[in-house]
Measured scan of single mutants.
Amino acid sequence: MSGIALSRLAQERKAWRKDHPFGFVAVPTKNPDGTMNLMNWECAIPGKKGTPWEGGLFKLRMLFKDDYPSSPPKCKFEPPLFHPNVYPSGTVCLSILEEDKDWRPAITIKQILLGIQELLNEPNIQDPAQAEAYTIYCQNRVEYEKRVRAQAKKFAPS
Results as ranks from 00 to 15, higher is better:
56 G>P: 09
104 R>L: 03
5 A>C: 15
10 A>I: 06
26 A>H: 00
70 S>P: 05
69 P>S: 03
90 G>N: 02
92 V>T: 07
127 D>V: 00
111 Q>T: 13
157 P>Y: 09
117 Q>D: 07
103 W>G: 03
141 R>S: 08
59 K>A: 09
126 Q>G: 11
142 V>K: 15
89 S>I: 13
97 L>M: 12
146 K>P: 00
101 K>S: 13
20 H>R: 08
88 P>V: 08
136 I>A: 11
133 A>V: 05
106 A>P: 06
80 P>A: 14
6 L>H: 08
77 F>E: 03
134 Y>S: 11
32 P>R: 15
140 N>H: 09
46 P>E: 07
68 Y>V: 04
24 F>N: 05
20 H>C: 05
80 P>R: 11
145 E>Y: 12
85 N>L: 00
109 I>C: 07
83 H>K: 05
38 L>E: 07
153 K>W: 06
52 P>D: 11
90 G>M: 10
33 D>F: 01
75 C>T: 07
89 S>T: 12
26 A>M: 01
118 E>S: 07
28 P>L: 07
37 N>I: 09
148 V>M: 02
126 Q>Y: 10
154 K>N: 09
21 P>C: 03
144 Y>I: 03
116 I>S: 11
100 D>E: 08
67 D>L: 07
122 E>W: 08
70 S>M: 10
22 F>L: 05
75 C>P: 15
108 T>Y: 15
33 D>V: 02
157 P>E: 06
151 Q>L: 07
129 A>S: 06
144 Y>V: 01
37 N>H: 12
18 K>D: 04
117 Q>C: 12
14 K>V: 09
4 I>A: 12
47 G>V: 00
115 G>I: 01
81 L>S: 03
143 E>P: 06
148 V>F: 00
129 A>T: 02
16 W>E: 03
48 K>C: 06
33 D>H: 00
57 L>Q: 11
35 T>V: 03
64 F>D: 05
76 K>D: 15
74 K>T: 15
74 K>G: 15
129 A>K: 02
100 D>Q: 11
114 L>N: 12
69 P>Q: 01
107 I>P: 03
73 P>M: 15
152 A>Y: 00
63 L>R: 12
17 R>P: 04
41 W>I: 04
77 F>S: 02
125 I>W: 10
148 V>G: 02
83 H>G: 04
115 G>K: 00
25 V>H: 09
36 M>W: 00
116 I>P: 02
19 D>W: 06
154 K>F: 04
120 L>M: 11
35 T>M: 05
122 E>A: 12
48 K>V: 04
41 W>A: 08
69 P>N: 01
109 I>F: 08
18 K>V: 13
15 A>Q: 14
12 E>R: 03
48 K>G: 02
140 N>V: 01
153 K>T: 08
8 R>N: 09
38 L>M: 06
158 S>E: 06
25 V>D: 10
22 F>V: 04
140 N>L: 02
54 E>C: 03
51 T>A: 02
144 Y>K: 02
56 G>W: 01
105 P>W: 03
96 I>C: 03
26 A>W: 09
67 D>A: 12
20 H>D: 05
141 R>F: 12
20 H>E: 02
135 T>Y: 08
32 P>Q: 14
145 E>L: 14
124 N>M: 04
19 D>L: 04
62 M>R: 00
149 R>K: 12
139 Q>W: 09
5 A>E: 11
42 E>N: 05
30 K>C: 04
4 I>R: 09
50 G>E: 13
125 I>Y: 02
75 C>Y: 03
13 R>A: 03
150 A>E: 10
40 N>W: 05
94 L>A: 04
120 L>Q: 05
97 L>G: 06
10 A>M: 15
147 R>M: 12
115 G>P: 04
62 M>E: 02
63 L>S: 14
151 Q>E: 04
121 N>S: 12
29 T>D: 10
73 P>L: 05
119 L>F: 15
25 V>W: 07
85 N>C: 04
137 Y>F: 09
113 L>K: 03
137 Y>E: 02
84 P>I: 14
24 F>Q: 02
53 W>V: 06
111 Q>W: 14
13 R>H: 05
65 K>M: 15
69 P>R: 01
28 P>F: 06
13 R>Y: 02
41 W>M: 07
78 E>A: 11
47 G>P: 01
8 R>G: 02
155 F>C: 11
42 E>H: 07
